Simulated assay, not measured.
Amino acid sequence: MVRYASPEQPLPPELLRAVKVFGVNPIRASIVRLLAQSPAPMTTGEIAKVLTGASYKTIFNHVQDLASEGTLVSDARADPHGQRVRYTVDREAIRRELREYSKYLLGEALSSDDGN
């Protein structure tokens, strides 16, 4: 069984069931929510300071994965070496992924089925 690190501040009770049912990683969910609520982009270090239930390395790896999938965007140059990279949520990307997952779960045609 997959073990996930959990944020120090637990998810609201009404979301715990959905997290369990769909196998959502609570750290990723917490990262996305934190960035969505933040008035300014944040570095991985700033995120790790707020989400104290996971190590910096865990936060960093999740942020990198989310960014590579296009759900987070950064202010990084092509070569970010030595740069403090700040991240924010691409709200439309999140909405698009949730729509597609919902369609899949409900057996509806996916956008890729439509030729899009």
Rank of each mutant, 00 (worst) to 15 (best):
A67Y: 07
P26K: 01
L98S: 11
V73A: 07
S68E: 14
V24W: 06
T43A: 06
R84D: 14
S102R: 15
R99E: 12
A109G: 08
K20S: 14
A78E: 11
V2F: 14
E14P: 00
V89N: 00
I59L: 05
I94W: 04
L16K: 12
G70K: 04
L98A: 12
L110E: 00
Q9C: 11
V50N: 04
M1T: 13
T88H: 08
I31Y: 02
A29K: 08
L72E: 03
Y56R: 13
R84K: 10
D79L: 10
L51P: 00
V32R: 02
S30V: 09
R96P: 01
T71S: 11
R96K: 04
A18L: 09
H62C: 10
K49I: 12
D90K: 03
K20I: 15
P13W: 06
R77Y: 15
R96T: 02
V63K: 01
L72Y: 02
I47H: 01
S74H: 12
R99G: 06
K20W: 13
Q83R: 05
E46V: 06
E69M: 12
E92M: 07
Q83P: 00
T71E: 15
G115F: 03
D75Y: 05
R17D: 10
V89I: 01
D75V: 04
H81G: 11
I94V: 11
T58D: 05
A76R: 01
A76P: 02
I94C: 05
S74F: 07
V21E: 09
N116H: 14
D113A: 03
D79W: 14
D79I: 14
Q37E: 10
D90S: 05
D79A: 15
K103G: 06
A54L: 05
P41H: 05
H62Y: 10
D75R: 06
T88K: 15
Y4P: 01
Q64V: 13
T52N: 15
V73F: 04
D75K: 05
K49L: 12
V24Q: 07
G82P: 07
S102K: 13
Q83E: 05
K103V: 06
E69N: 13
V32E: 03
E100Q: 00
H81E: 11
D75F: 04
R86S: 06
R33F: 08
F22Q: 08
S74E: 04
I59C: 03
R96C: 00
H62F: 09
A76Y: 00
T43R: 06
E8F: 13
V2D: 15
Q37H: 11
L15I: 03
P10V: 00
T58N: 07
E92Y: 09
P80C: 00
G107H: 02
L35W: 02
F60L: 13
Q9N: 11
A109C: 08
F22P: 04
Q37R: 15
Q64S: 14
S112R: 14
D75L: 04
A109L: 14
P26V: 03
E97R: 11
D113N: 04
S30Q: 07
R91M: 12
I31A: 02
V50I: 12
M42F: 09
L34T: 09
S55F: 06
A67F: 14
I27P: 00
A40K: 15
L16N: 12
L106N: 05
L106F: 03
